[in-house]
Design a protein around this nucleic acid. Sequence first.
DNA 1: AGACGGGTGCGGCAAATTGCCCCTTCGTAT
DNA 2: ATACGAAGGGGCAATTTGCCGCACCCGTCT
Lengths: 184, 184
Amino acid sequence: MLIIEDDDALRDQLQRALGSRGWLCHAENSVASGLTRLATLSQLDAALLDLNLGADNGLALIEPILARFPRCRVLILTGYGSIPSAVAATRRGAHNYLTKPASLADILAALDQDTAQQTPDLPDAPPSLERLEWEHIQRVLDEHEGNISAAARVLGIHRRTLQRRLKKRPSPSDYARDRNPASS
Amino acid sequence: MLIIEDDDALRDQLQRALGSRGWLCHAENSVASGLTRLATLSQLDAALLDLNLGADNGLALIEPILARFPRCRVLILTGYGSIPSAVAATRRGAHNYLTKPASLADILAALDQDTAQQTPDLPDAPPSLERLEWEHIQRVLDEHEGNISAAARVLGIHRRTLQRRLKKRPSPSDYARDRNPASS
DNA sequence: AGACGGGTGCGGCAAATTGCCCCTTCGTAT
DNA sequence: ATACGAAGGGGCAATTTGCCGCACCCGTCT
């Protein structure tokens, strides 16, 4: 597997986690180095691409990867997913598209998921305004590595308010971290 | 073009609007009738499918359509889009995926958009909490045809509150309706 | 060491917002 | 006609926000 992710911590963590699951992972942090690495590989079953690589865009790697390894499963992992970008990625051949607070389980599931993914799951409309708000907050908070002040600024609300809101909800937030829900 | 949409008003409106743009539209309101209609066609350049057809799912039509008319552009139109469903639709061959408050212009643009859609647009993160909230409200409101009471119930907030919030924002919302922004 | 900048909790308080009850007007189904 | 659901809006009390301030912790620069 090839991992392209610019957040050092997350990259290492993913590499280790996937490594322990039996994946031989090559990790890079940019489109350029990813391409270089790609050229040296003789086999590639999967790729995990971050969309947001500084100025670059992980999308750019999809085609080169598939050109060389047509059967490679390309997974997109991004902080703020959007429908248009998900469509763009999928059209380019991505196998699946995940938004960032993704657990290892999510990633593995996304890899396995056959194209036969009949699951029309039909989310239909779970439009509880509060939940949506909460999820967004979690996403932003995660993006800022838990920095409440920063997240509040980006969200456009007062730091104190975010703080108060967070306290109200226990928030599971065991996202990517350590895939060991066992320990308390 | 083939339009499958279960909201009678929207269906007619789309048919008319697209008709006036030179598209010969066949409109149906269910997967079953869509399949039947499909069998009678000898040519099909585009399809506009609602994902939410009562108990059915518009996704089911993508494959039959493409099997018969491989070059047909399939557009998905849905009230509540989600990334997973967008990915599923695209993987099945949909050309693009739109969420409901979509204007005619959006639809036409989505149809034209060549796969060459290089636009990585990189929405990166426009996470203003308030905006997200507002957009969601608009979506839900639209889904309930402007019925404030119903929307408030679904959103989980008080009707009065929704009402007050709506009054504060002029809300452009010229979405699909009538493509005639001219009249007041 | 001491100053400084930035982040985290938390108390308090005025101001804004929400939730709720009530009332009126409408269009429509009974 | 009467009942019902919905939209608008008037109050009002209960929350929630926004905005200080303060204490404290941590790196870093002087």
